[in-house]
Design a protein around this nucleic acid. Structure first.
Lengths: 158, 158
DNA sequence: GGACGATAGTTGACTAATCAACTATTGTCG
DNA sequence: CGACAATAGTTGATTAGTCAACTATCGTCC
C-alpha cells in the first residue's frame, strides 16, 4: 500500500500513478512550507514575506520593481502590493517611485530587513538540511531533476 | 545553472542542495495546485473544498467526523469548520451530530456533491496525467519514492 | 504631438485562513 | 457519584488572499 495512502487513511488506492505523485507532491511541499513557517513566524513574518525579503536581498542595492518581485515568488501571489505594504509598515522594506519610468515602484530591503534575514539564515538552512539530509546527495540530485522535469512538462500544457 | 534558479531569475546560486530541493518542491507543488484549481474553480469550489469532497466520497455512506477530515487533508487546514460550512451551504455536504457521542459531527457527501465530483474526475485525471506523463512510469515511481522518503525524514525532526 | 494600446501598480469589495478563547460532551479515577 | 482533564467542535477578531475595476504613465505610430 502506498505510504501516502496510509498517511491520509485512504481506503481506496489511487486511480493512477500520476495522481499519487500529485498528492505526494502537494503534501510534501505543505510539510516544507510549514517547517519554514515555524522558523520565520516567531520573528513576525509569514513564509511569503520571507520569500520577498530573500528576493530583495538577492537583488541587492538596485532593488526590484513590484511586479518583478511577484514573478520571482516561489508561490504565485496576486496580492503582491499589500504583501509589500505590510513589509514596509514593519520597516523591513523601502519603496520609491522610479524616476526614469514613473509607473514603476522600486522596492529595496532595509538594514533592519537584512539583519532579520541574517538571523534566519542558519535556522532555515538547518531545517532544510535536517529534513532532506536523509536522502543523501545522489537522491537529492535526482529529486531536483525530477521536479525540474515535472515543471517543464506543466509549462508545456499551459 | 540550476533550472529553478533561472526560473526565479536568481542571481546567486543556492547555498545548499537541500535548499534548492525545498524551493523546487514548493514551486512544483504550487504549479500542481494551480492546475487543480483551474479545473475545479469553474464549478464553484476551491481546491481545498475539492479535497474535502474527495475525502468524503472515499469515506462512503458512513461519513466522517469533522476533525477526522482535517487530518486527512493534503494540506493542513485549521479552518475546517468553516470550510465545511461553505460546502454545506452549497448543498454538497450534509452534517449531523453523532447520537452515540454528541461531541462529534458526522459529515457526508450529498448526491449533488457526488455528481459534481464525477464531472470533475476525468478532467482532473487528465491534468495530472498530462503534467506527469513525460516522466514515464519509472521516473514517476522514483519521484513518489523520494517524496515519501522526504516526508518520513520531516516527521522525524518534528 | 495627440490618440491609443500597453505596462505598472493600486484600490475596493469580497472571500478565505489563522489563532486563541470558548462551549459541550465524554472518559476516568479517587 | 462528582470533580477534572481530555476530546470535538465552534466562534470572534484579526489578518491575509483574490478578483475585477481603476489610475497613472509610457511607447508608438500615424
Amino acid at each position: 500500500m502506498a505510504p501516502i495512502q496510509e498517511e491520509l487513511k485512504q481506503n481506496r488506492p489511487f486511480r493512477t500513478r500520476s495522481e499519487e505523485a500529485a498528492v505526494a507532491l502537494m503534501r510534501t511541499a505543505d510539510l516544507v512550507r510549514r517547517t519554514v513557517g515555524a522558523v520565520v513566524e516567531p520573528v513576525g513574518i509569514t513564509p511569503q514575506q520571507y520569500n520577498v525579503l530573500r528576493i530583495l536581498r538577492g537583488a541587492g542595492e538596485a532593488g526590484l520593481p513590484t511586479l518583478e518581485i511577484a514573478e520571482r515568488m516561489i508561490e504565485q501571489t496576486p496580492g503582491i502590493t499589500r504583501l509589500i505594504d505590510r513589509l514596509e509598515a514593519k520597516g523591513l522594506v523601502r519603496r520609491e517611485r522610479c524616476l526614469t519610468d514613473r509607473r514603476q515602484v522600486f522596492c529595496r530591503i532595509s538594514g533592519e530587513g537584512l539583519s532579520l534575514l541574517e538571523r534566519l539564515d542558519e535556522p532555515i538552512r538547518e531545517a532544510d538540511a535536517a529534513a532532506l539530509r536523509s536522502l543523501g546527495d545522489h537522491d537529492l540530485e535526482r529529486l531536483i531533476e525530477l521536479l525540474d522535469k515535472t515543471r517543464r512538462a506543466y509549462r508545456r500544457i499551459q
